[in-house]
């Protein structure tokens, strides 16, 4: 019986292998390039930004965070000037699988441009290639895809890590103990903040010891739990680096409850974090004007649709960098009400 079962499955596997071996099998981007012969030519000429029907999709990592909401608001604000543009926002649900599925759907529905916050750079490369091959420009927002595409509007991550390391290093006078509450393992943004932070620490502040690093999975409540654990484990902590503001807020609440004082840093610059800084619960954050970044993505997308530029016209991905602004109590007033999100 066993032999019969195994042989049945092996026959299936062999049949599949033979199909692959018999040529004619195309990868996604090859197939998309083949299918879109005419469309690619049309896209190369570009569309009229004021009169042609244009459909733009925004696919963030998750729709539920304040950053994504601010980006969408910025994009919508800009695109609402064009009555001929339809703008749809999807939810990547922090899943590579979901993002790939939605990318495929947008390609099938012949969107004119896609703005993507890639949950994973390598994991979204294939579908980005497929979209570009089908003549659809892909603009990545903050989290890039690991392939040449129409454009990237980058917030700060490596630079944020570097700048926070500089501040901590200087204010502690080159010696002290630091803990890190990190992003979900594997998340590109978290990895980049870590890279920037650790590189500066190793290079310039070798007297500062990184005691521990645990994931708070981007969440306030998880960061609170992790911080409580750090506080019981380590009698001396001088500074905490959190990979986003939401986690910094959780860490601040834990430190406040324990009656301990230390520097607590986040990244993003959301309004709640700015309130925490004002109240002295957190030390600082690296602010990005997400609404402006969203608008920049939309402008980039409209430029690509109008000019017909896609990856095939480019040898590397053009990058627009947002300015990293380190915000502490000293310069908090520079972030005016209309800049808060």
């Amino acid at each position: 019986m066993k032999k019969k079962i195994v042989s049945l499955f092996l026959v299936g596997a062999m049949a599949a292998t033979m199909l692959m071996g018999c040529g004619g099998v195309k990868t996604d981007s090859e197939a998309a390039a083949g299918d879109s012969g005419e469309e690619t030519a049309e896209a190369a000429e570009g569309k009229n930004a004021y009169s042609d029907e244009i459909k733009i999709g925004f696919l963030p990592n998750v729709i539920g965070d304040s950053c994504a909401a601010a980006w969408a608001e910025g994009m919508e604000g800009y695109l609402s000037n064009f009555s001929n543009v339809t703008f749809n926002v999807f939810d990547g649900k922090a899943s590579v699988d979901t993002e790939n599925t939605i990318m495929e759907q947008m390609i099938n529905e012949k969107y004119d441009a896609i703005i993507l916050q890639a949950t994973d750079a390598a994991g979204l490369a294939a579908s980005t290639d497929k979209a570009e091959a089908a003549g659809i420009p892909v603009i990545t927002c903050n989290l890039d895809a690991d392939t040449t595409h129409t454009g990237l509007v980058a917030g700060v991550d490596v630079e944020a890590g570097q700048q926070i390391a500089e501040h901590i290093g200087e204010t502690l006078g080159g010696t002290g103990k630091v803990v890190i509450i990190s992003a979900t393992p594997g998340a590109t943004k978290g990895e980049n903040i870590d890279k920037g932070f650790k590189a500066v620490m190793e290079e310039k502040y070798s007297g500062i010891e990184i005691l521990d690093e645990q994931s708070g999975e981007w969440l306030t409540e998880n960061a609170n739990t992790v911080m409580n654990d750090f506080l019981t484990k380590y009698p001396e902590i001088d500074a905490v680096l959190c990979h986003n503001d939401a986690m910094a807020e959780g860490a601040a609440e834990a430190a406040k409850a324990a009656g301990r004082e230390m520097q607590i840093w986040g990244v993003d610059g959301e309004s709640k974090m700015l309130d925490y800084i004002e109240q002295g619960l957190c030390t600082g954050t690296v602010y990005t004007d997400c609404q402006r970044q969203g608008a920049a993505c939309a402008q980039f997308a409209m430029y690509a649709v109008g000019s017909g530029i896609t990856a095939k016209n480019l040898s590397a991905t053009p990058i627009v960098k947002m300015a990293p602004i380190v915000v502490t109590q000293e310069n908090l007033s520079e972030i005016t009400e209309d800049m808060r999100w």
Partner: peptide, 25 residues
């Protein structure tokens, strides 16, 4: 020490995500 996801470049693996005349493997 940091988790880094890498692109798979082996065509033998990538072809498994491919299709024959539009029908996916």
């Amino acid at each position: 020490g940091v988790i880094t996801n890498k692109k798979i470049t082996d065509p033998g693996i990538l072809i498994m995500g491919g299709s024959i005349n539009g029908i996916y493997l």
